[in-house]
Every structure is written in structure tokens, then in C-alpha cells.
């Protein structure tokens, strides 16, 4: 190696920034700038056309917090995120363990799991909206024709049942990629542990709770934090299937933000909702970084 590379004088230490310039430019202009713009707007008086009138007011935040539906929206977002991640992680761990075994259905199941991940969220949402329709939905058709129920069930009829079905769809789209991440974690666990445990007379449950789950722990932690973020940011399923109806009672922060900006035309209030969203996301990212670093040092 020549001296030029080994020991760099002053300015050359910054060479890396030259390599990263395209990424830095893109991210600054199209991610960082909108963040700053949203923060600025949230503290400003904004006209219906989206023009900033004056800076330095808390009215947008007051307005949002005063909305009678806002607590419901927050509770929905928490329930949506927590339930989807919890249910998905249980299903995904089970599926990952299943797919780590050799048996005939393994390959086809693995291939199929990629389908929901490769399909656009909007299309998945459309199918389930149709499938769950009260009048002519295919789930009702299946239940009636197979004689399981006498008359159609109105799955999306009230807020609670609609929200439960939204969570079902959320789980449907979350499980595939989660399973693949956990499966790759499982495959990195050495077979030796299991062989030694078998010699010691350990059964399936012993191995599950004493070997598999403890060793999978770091992968599970990272998966949970990442998926909490994905679910929190999720928009298209709620927007397409219920659109927040009835009366915002199935809205999450993201769909409520969209409605506030593009249906109601209150950009200032929407920016305030964004900022509330950032704060939650920032808390998550700090947790994520800690989890990630713990894993790297462990």
C-alpha cells in the first residue's frame, strides 16, 4: 500500500464525502428539506392554498389537540401498531421454525410467502376491501355457500369490527418479510446445539425455549423495532379499506394527516400532525439504534 492511502493529509480525510455526495444531495433535498419545511409550517399560519402567512404560532397544535377525534386517532395508531407487531411476531416465529425444517411443502410455502411482499399495498387493500364487502364480498359468499352462516356478516359495518379486519390485513402483509428475517436468523444457529441437546434428552419444547428463542432474541428485537416503525408509517391499507370511516373512528395518525391536508385543506394542522409523528418516530429510532448497537457489541 503506498503512503498516499495510508496516511492522508487534512482535506483528503474528507474524500468519503465526495463519494457520498449524490446520496447526501438527494437525501438533503427530498427528505431533510421536507422535514424542515413541515416543522416550519407547523409553527406558521398557513392559508388554504398552502402559503405561509406568518411564523411563530402554536395555533396549529392547539387546533389538532382540540379535535374531539384526535385521542381516538392516537389510541388507534397505538393499537394498530402494537397488535400487528405482536400477532405477526408470534406467527412469524412459528412459520420460520416450520420453514427451517425439511419437508415437501417447504419450497412452495417459501415462494408463496413472497407474494404478499411483492404485491403493491394498494392492490392488496383493494382485494380485501372487496373480499370483506357486506353485500357481495367473497368472504360472505364463501360463508353462505358453505352453509356456515345464514345471512351476510357486515365485517366493515362498525368501527371496532372494521378496525379488527384492518389489523388482520396488516398482519397479512407484515408476516412474510418478518418470517424471512427470522428464518435467516434461525439458519445462523449452529446445529451442534440441537445435537448436544438431543443427546441430553431434551424434547421439542426444551429446545424451543432454551436454545432457539434465546439465540433468536437479537433478530427478534431488531425485527420488532423495525416493524413498529413500518406499521406506524402504514397508510394505504386504512386509507383504501375504510378511509377512516365511520367518522374518523378507524383513522390512524397517517390517514388523519392525509385527510387534514388533502381533504380538509388545513396544511398547518397537517404539518402539526406530522411533527407529532416525527417525535414518535424519533423516539423509536433512538430505541432502534440502541437495540442495533447492543446487538453489534454482543
Amino acid at each position: 500500500m503506498d503512503a498516499r492511502i495510508r496516511k492522508k493529509p487534512g482535506i483528503a480525510r474528507f474524500e468519503a464525502y465526495l463519494w457520498m455526495l449524490p446520496t447526501l444531495t438527494l437525501v438533503s433535498v427530498f427528505v431533510l428539506f421536507p422535514v424542515l419545511e413541515s416543522v416550519y409550517m407547523s409553527f406558521s399560519k398557513v392559508s388554504k392554498a398552502g402559503i405561509i402567512k406568518s411564523f411563530g404560532t402554536l395555533d396549529n397544535f392547539r387546533y389538532v389537540l382540540k379535535q374531539p377525534v384526535f385521542p381516538r386517532v392516537i389510541v388507534n395508531t397505538v393499537v394498530w401498531t402494537v397488535l400487528i407487531v405482536l400477532i405477526s411476531i408470534v406467527i412469524s416465529i412459528t412459520l420460520a421454525i416450520v420453514l427451517n425444517e425439511r419437508f415437501h411443502l417447504r419450497r412452495i410455502t417459501r415462494t408463496m410467502l413472497l407474494f404478499p411482499w411483492a404485491t403493491s399495498g394498494f392492490i392488496t387493500a383493494c382485494v380485501w376491501k372487496y373480499a370483506l364487502d357486506y353485500q357481495y364480498g367473497s368472504v360472505n359468499a364463501l360463508l353462505i355457500r358453505s352453509g356456515l352462516v345464514k345471512k351476510n356478516i357486515n365485517f366493515l359495518g362498525n368501527a371496532d369490527s372494521a378496525f379488527a379486519w384492518l389489523i388482520f390485513v396488516g398482519v397479512f402483509v407484515t408476516v412474510p418479510f418478518m418470517t424471512f428475517t427470522l428464518l435467516s436468523g434461525l439458519q445462523s444457529i449452529s446445529v451442534d446445539y440441537y445435537e448436544a441437546a438431543t443427546i441430553d434428552g431434551a424434547g421439542f419444547w426444551d429446545k424451543l425455549f432454551k436454545i432457539t428463542l434465546p439465540l433468536l432474541r437479537p433478530a427478534i428485537n431488531v425485527t420488532i423495532v423495525l416493524n413498529v416503525i413500518y406499521c406506524f408509517n402504514s397508510f394505504v391499507f386504512v386509507h383504501t379499506i375504510t378511509g377512516g370511516t365511520p367518522a374518523h373512528r378507524t383513522d390512524t395518525i397517517m390517514t388523519y394527516l392525509y385527510w387534514m391536508a388533502f381533504s380538509k385543506g388545513n396544511y398547518g394542522a397537517a404539518a402539526a400532525i406530522s411533527v407529532i409523528g416525527f417525535i414518535v418516530l424519533l423516539i423509536f429510532s433512538v430505541i432502534y439504534m440502541n437495540v442495533q448497537m447492543k446487538e453489534e457489541t454482543a
Binding site: 413541515s38 404539518a271 409523528g277
Partner: peptide
């Protein structure tokens, strides 16, 4: 989606 307003602007 969380940045929609800023992006739009």
C-alpha cells in the same frame, strides 16, 4: 407519508 405536506410544498 409522514412528510407529505413538506414534500408537496
Amino acid at each position: 407519508v409522514v412528510l407529505l405536506v413538506g414534500i408537496y410544498k
